[in-house]
Amino acid sequence: MNLSSYTKAFALMLSVGLVAGCSTTGENTDDGMGGGSDVQAIDQNGGSTVYGGDSQGGVSATEMTDEEKQAAAEKAKQAALRDVTTFYFDFDTSEIKPEAREVLVAHARYLADHPNQNVRLEGHSDERGTKEYNLALGERRANAVKQFLIVNGASRGQIETVSYGEEKPAVMGSNESAWAQNRRVELIYK
């Protein structure tokens, strides 16, 4: 037998040993000598327990109160809302759309809860109008979002605004679809 055959045989034996060592019979191997696991995957009530099979110090899903579950669900919803960071505007206006308000409230609450977090609001417009007008329109849009965030709990010191006007389009094109995607404020956490 050459070295390659020995290597293959060793690898095969190692694989068989791993499979045999990792398999279980489903029997309880705790013989009272402390050799069993201290983690119970599912308790008798159907809830899962993490760290410790007994009720001492473990965290169980069945022990969450309805209020805690509701608070956790609300926190998850707020986090999901904060995933939206681009807010669109109608032609030639800086009025925040109603569908953006709930999302902006979630951002304002996050900023209020995290006073060391800063955000930059970048205002944009479509290509119609003069460069000067579009810069001013982008600034009005960014300031409208800023004011909304402040009214809903964010601090002025956390928010910076900048206007790019028509200079940084999200979509190239000279049609309503492209223009609609370019009339926006982007919220960027720093």
Rank of each mutant, 00 (worst) to 15 (best):
C22T: 02
E68A: 14
N28E: 04
G32Y: 04
S55K: 12
G17I: 00
S60H: 12
Q44H: 06
D30I: 06
S23G: 04
E68V: 11
V59C: 06
E27R: 08
D38F: 04
G26H: 04
L18Q: 08
I42S: 09
G34E: 02
G57H: 02
G47M: 06
S23W: 09
T62L: 13
T24L: 00
A9M: 06
D54F: 09
D38A: 07
K8P: 00
V50M: 05
Q44E: 14
A41K: 06
K8Y: 08
Q40Y: 01
G35C: 08
E67D: 13
G35M: 09
S37G: 01
T49G: 09
E27W: 04
G47D: 15
G36Q: 02
G32S: 07
Q56H: 05
A61N: 15
E68L: 13
D30K: 02
T49D: 08
T49W: 11
M33W: 04
D31E: 08
C22Y: 03
M33N: 13
G52L: 07
S60N: 13
M33I: 05
A20F: 10
F10C: 06
D66M: 13
S55L: 08
T25Y: 01
A20L: 13
G21H: 01
C22I: 07
M13K: 12
A9H: 02
S15M: 12
T62R: 15
D43H: 10
G46L: 01
K8A: 13
D31R: 12
M33Q: 10
T25P: 00
V16N: 01
G57Q: 10
E67N: 11
Q40P: 00
S37P: 01
C22D: 01
D38Y: 03
G58Y: 00
T29H: 03
D31I: 07
T49P: 01
M33Y: 06
D54Y: 07
D30W: 03
G36W: 07
G46E: 02
D43Y: 11
G47K: 07
T24P: 00
E63V: 14
T65I: 04
D54C: 07
S15G: 01
G57S: 10
G46P: 05
T29N: 08
M33V: 02
S48W: 13
